[in-house]
Computed example of a mutant assay.
Amino acid sequence: MPTEGSSTPAAISLSGLSKHFGEVRAVDDLDLQIADGEFFSMLGPSGSGKTTVLRLIAGFEKPTAGTIVLGDRDVTDVPAYARDVNTVFQDYAIFPHMNVLQNVEYGLRVKKVRKTERRRRAEEALATVRLEGFADRRPHQLSGGQRQRVALARALVNRPRVLLLDEPLGALDLKLRREMQIELKQIQRDVGITFVFVTHDQEEALTMSDRIAVFNEGRIEQLAAPVELYEEPASAFVAGFVGTSNLIQGAVAQQLVGREGTFVVRPEKVSMVAASDAPPPGPDTCVAPGVVREVVYLGASTHSVVALDAGATLTVSHQNSDRSIEAALERREQRVVLTWRRDQLVSLGGAAAPGTSPMEETR
């Protein structure tokens, strides 16, 4: 990643970038730099502006204001076909009348690359996405994951400076999507080019990214590495969108934390014990009695929803690493005590964002 004083330009530089559709500010005065060789994700709910930014970078939309620079070239007014980028969409758009090799070669044929050269490069691209031996197959003979790899190879064969990926795993089932997350990150490391990945799935973003920009209403709410984004959310919106968060605020914060403000504690940081085993509160520990209102079994983990005497509702998560699942499921309506370390609280300062509930799970 370029550092201050570095002579290496960023792969992408966006300055004052805006896109308005009538009265709607889809992208609002955005400044962003994405480094060469970085796996960068734009994460956010539908309508947050992330896909519009991707389309602006690709050249499919013209900005209302601002500049787009690829490397050291201003491409703000350059048409899409003349930009050194390629895009992979959720709809792979593979030509059904062509075999795999012909699909991958297609972009090189349009550019009039010699047959021997395009064949060599297409075979290299197929090897990169681990599809050696599939060159003669037709798209209908491929699985969903294999078709996704063909689309990826077709983009990589052009050797773009930047590869743009618009929710390319969205059509895959959960198991295959998780496998492809790992493979896609490995492919990015192998080819060494900049990947810009758009998703609304926080697990995808956390799994693959070097950095993540969380979008909300056309602006970046927080830009950080995955660990920082999860462990130190900058706002109630980020805390609620990236993972599951317990927000403690107002009078509840005054009672449990000892001061006013808005605080976040993640469900896996909270411990739950029977009321009879409650530890005394101390300078390093918060203690909150309450009643279990719901228990949700999720296979690898169990979530318990607890209504606190102080007035808030918190979620507790623990891994199902033993055979006490039945006991956990029988805790509904039982009195319990929740505890967490004070250093596990993240302060968000003032009040929570409007419309944010005490417990908000990732969409």
Score class of each variant (00 low, 15 high):
G170Y: 11
G145N: 14
D166A: 11
E179C: 01
L172T: 04
E167T: 05
F197R: 03
L156A: 07
R147W: 04
D201I: 06
L169K: 01
K185G: 01
V150T: 06
T207D: 13
A205H: 09
Q202S: 08
A155P: 07
L206V: 14
L174S: 13
E179Y: 14
E204P: 00
V162D: 01
E167L: 04
L164T: 01
V150C: 08
M180I: 00
T207C: 12
R147I: 05
I187H: 04
P168F: 03
Q148D: 03
Q181F: 04
E204C: 06
L152G: 04
Q181H: 11
E167Y: 07
K175M: 03
Q181L: 02
I182P: 06
Q148N: 12
H200C: 03
T199L: 01
Q188R: 06
L206E: 10
E167Q: 12
A205V: 11
V162R: 00
L164Q: 05
A171W: 11
K175V: 02
L156G: 01
G145T: 10
I187S: 03
R149S: 09
G170S: 15
V157S: 05
A155K: 04
L169M: 07
A153H: 09
V196P: 01
M180C: 01
G145I: 11
E183G: 01
Q202C: 02
L172R: 02
I187Y: 06
A153K: 10
G170V: 14
L176V: 14
T194E: 02
D166H: 12
Q186V: 11
V150H: 08
R154D: 00
L184I: 11
F195E: 10
L156N: 02
V191E: 02
Q186A: 15
A151H: 05
A171I: 06
Q148I: 00
E203Y: 14
D190H: 14
R178I: 05
L176Q: 07
R159K: 15
E183Y: 13
A153F: 08
V196R: 02
F197G: 06
D201Y: 13
E179D: 15
R178S: 09
G145F: 08
R147Y: 03
G144W: 09
E167I: 01
K185L: 02
V198F: 10
R159W: 07
Q202G: 05
L206F: 11
A171H: 14
F197D: 04
K175E: 10
L206G: 02
D173L: 07
L152I: 03
N158C: 15
I182V: 15
F197V: 04
A151Q: 05
V196Y: 08
A151G: 14
M180P: 03
R177P: 09
R149H: 13
G144E: 11
V196T: 12
R154L: 07
V150R: 13
K185S: 04
G144V: 13
L164V: 06
E179K: 05
A205P: 00
E204N: 12
L172M: 05
G192D: 05
L163I: 15
A155L: 06
E203M: 09
I187K: 00
V191S: 03
H200L: 00
N158Q: 15
D166V: 04
E179H: 13
P168L: 10
P168E: 12
N158S: 15
D173H: 03
P160S: 00
R149T: 05
F195K: 02
G145P: 08
